[in-house]
């Protein structure tokens, strides 16, 4: 394996984004960087998968999808991004251009308008959800107003939005597809993994864990079994 000698990929260029943008859009932070590190750690595996359809949910600044587009041969996949926040979609598009990756932002909640056509088609699904435990009312209000609090307010156990997506992940992933999810210790990653295995037959693996200030973060990867060849 030559991977350990591979120079690490730079963080995407975000110099075009301003303070004014970060008033409306989540600024990349430790959780974002942990996700980048997790994707980079899996770089060889992701390239071998030859993904054609990538979807990032809640793409925010566009940092993660731009990174993914640099990690993979950029013209070899479609990089779809959704965010309920229109400012985030604008930033996602700009960050793609800035980093020479064509990203396709769509103002939408989760994968809603794509669910019908992308059944069993998503090769790489990525979600850095609003994972901070809050009241349900706070989480609902954050989603309805589509502002920056939608990037973190996660409701009960920080899992309210994530739980909605988890139930549709098995339908969305292609055979062999991968789903990367970010969270904190309060979300209960072992319970999530067990539930996905028992209810949907998806195996998983913790890719990285890290303490960042008061948060204990993790990135977990779920796999859908490849089609028998």
């Amino acid at each position: 394996m030559a991977s350990i000698f591979e120079p690490s990929l730079p963080t995407p260029d975000l110099s075009h984004l301003t303070r004014a943008d970060y008033e409306h859009v989540y600024e990349p932070a430790e959780d974002t960087f942990l996700l980048l590190d997790a994707l980079e750690k899996d770089a060889q595996e992701l390239r071998q998968l030859k993904p054609q359809v990538c979807l990032e949910i809640g793409s925010g600044s566009g940092c993660v999808s731009s990174f993914l587009g640099a990690l993979l041969p950029s013209s070899s996949a479609l990089y779809l991004c959704t965010d309920i926040n229109q400012h985030a979609c604008r930033c996602t598009k700009a960050t793609g251009s800035q980093n020479k990756v064509t990203l396709e932002p769509i103002i939408a909640s989760l994968a809603s308008p794509l669910q019908h056509r992308l059944a069993n088609q998503i090769d790489i699904l990525v979600f850095n959800p609003p994972y901070v435990p809050t009241t349900s009312d706070e989480a609902d209000a954050a989603q309805v107003t589509s502002g920056i609090s939608g990037a973190w307010a996660g409701g009960k156990s920080g899992m309210e939005l994530t739980n909605i997506l988890l139930s549709s992940v098995p339908k969305l992933l292609s055979p062999g597809g991968r789903f990367y999810l970010v969270g904190v210790v309060q979300n209960g990653v072992e319970e999530i993994r067990q539930r996905m295995r028992q209810a949907h037959g998806l195996d998983s693996e913790i890719v990285l864990e890290r303490r960042a200030g008061r948060e204990r973060l993790w990135v977990v990867k779920f796999f859908k079994a490849a089609a028998p060849s």
């Binding site: 479609l78 396709e104 669910q115 056509r117």
Partner: peptide, 23 residues
């Protein structure tokens, strides 16, 4: 960016709209 590749993947997802909702 709405390119036709993306448009080809988008369907109406309004409540109760499940048939003939594409393209």
């Amino acid at each position: 960016m709405v390119r036709l590749i993306t448009h080809n993947l988008l369907a109406c997802h309004a409540k109760g709209c499940n048939a003939n909702n594409f393209p």
